[in-house]
């Protein structure tokens, strides 16, 4: 091949800041040997004795020779002709090519960026759910146990009479039996206090029901609906999956915003919060569906569940932001409607 343009730059001795102007060129006939000219001296260097830094915009290229000397050059064209040509397309060169600013390509990249953010919302849960399957039930139960200990500290013991609480326990066991859960699940009845009429399920473990909820229920079918909903959460491991999805998002957002940087980390946390609410709403709908299925399986009336939800909404009042019900949940009206439809065989 014909001689190419020489690479000119500063040649440094190994471990030294001393530099002299030098020139590296490719021999006329043997392109595997290169000629290094500096201060009148010429050295022959094999191409494989030179290690070249990756191309990146117009950052100077470093050519490190096997004898320790270094040639620093801004002759990007010449370096590309002598070195980059031969090695073919590899990941670094493709990336470097893509990075060159061309307005049309940039618009495409921006659209791709927006599209990937949106698809992450659906892609991440899939990846996280796979990971969640590897978490053993015992570890999940431990999580729930630890959380329960905290709740137990602030909730007072139930004031329900023994007969009623036995009835509720029996109902609970009936529901667990009709579900796909194959491990024992405890139920604890406590006074709600600030939680009012409420029930919530902890990961892998106990379900807490408040006195107020039991008293609010017009009949056992209505109560069964609520209990079945909570069992649905445990069955589908919603607590664990929601936690892991949030953690996955936090990590992803922090990694991305480290790239983006300059933003408050708090601003970057905002989308995590919103997405977590969205995932939570879909989990709630899943639990509602599961509740209907279980209620129907044990021969109770699903309409009572919808009615119960109505009662709870009214009882909670305007400023309601309970632990489970009515926070990060679909709007009550929509939920009740969905439950009625699902229950009557629609959807």
């Amino acid at each position: 091949m014909a001689a190419t343009l020489p690479i000119t730059g500063d040649l440094f001795e190994e471990n030294s800041a001393k530099s002299r102007p030098a020139e590296l060129s490719s021999e006329e006939d043997y392109s595997d040997t290169l000629k290094l000219r500096c201060d009148g001296t010429t050295t022959h260097i094999g191409r494989d004795q030179v290690s070249v830094s990756d191309p990146l915009a117009n950052v100077p290229r470093r050519l490190v020779f096997s004898d320790g000397r270094v040639l620093v050059t801004r002759d990007h064209q010449a370096v590309a002709e002598i070195f980059d040509q031969g090695s073919g397309a590899n990941l670094t060169s493709i990336v470097a090519w893509a990075e060159i600013f061309r307005p049309r390509i940039m618009v495409i990249l921006i659209l791709l960026f927006l599209a990937s953010i949106i698809s992450l919302r659906f892609a991440l849960p899939v990846a996280v759910d796979v990971a969640a399957r590897m978490v053993p039930a015992s570890m999940e139960a431990r999580l729930g146990g630890v959380a329960f200990e905290s709740f137990d500290l602030i909730l007072k013991d139930s004031e329900l009479d023994a007969q009623r609480s036995d009835e509720v326990r029996a109902l609970f066991d009936e529901i667990v039996g009709a579900s796909d859960i194959d491990f024992p699940v405890d139920m604890h009845i406590r006074q709600g206090g600030f939680l009012k009429a409420n029930a919530f399920a902890l990961p892998g473990g106990p379900v807490i029901v408040t006195d107020e909820l039991i008293k609010l229920a017009p009949n056992d079918d209505a109560l069964a609906g609520v209990l079945a909903h909570e069992i649905g959460h445990i069955e589908e491991r919603h607590g664990l999956r929601r936690m892991m999805r949030a953690a996955g998002w936090v990590i992803l957002v922090s990694v991305i915003s480290e790239e983006a940087s300059g933003l408050f980390e708090e601003v970057a946390a905002f989308p995590t919060l919103l997405i977590d609410q969205a995932y939570s709403r879909s989990f709630e709908t899943d639990a509602d569906d599961r509740a209907i299925e279980i209620i129907v399986a044990i021969g109770r009336d699903p309409a009572a569940f919808a009615e119960m939800l109505n009662l709870i909404t009214k009882d909670c009042g305007q400023a309601c932001d309970g632990v489970d019900w009515l926070s990060s949940h679909p709007a009550p009206g929509d939920r009740i409607e969905h439950i009625r439809e699902y229950g009557s065989g629609g959807e």
């Binding site: 117009n58 990075e99 600013f101 940039m106 960026f113 990937s116 991440l124 992803l252 990694v255 790239e259």
Partner: peptide, 25 residues
């Protein structure tokens, strides 16, 4: 000039669920 590098970094980081972030840095 930096925009090109920045947006490609972001895209690859997202596509690799964060793994590329080391090379992006």
């Amino acid at each position: 000039e930096y925009f090109g590098i920045w947006i490609v970094n972001l895209l690859l980081t997202i596509a690799t669920l964060g793994i590329w972030s080391a090379w992006a840095k």
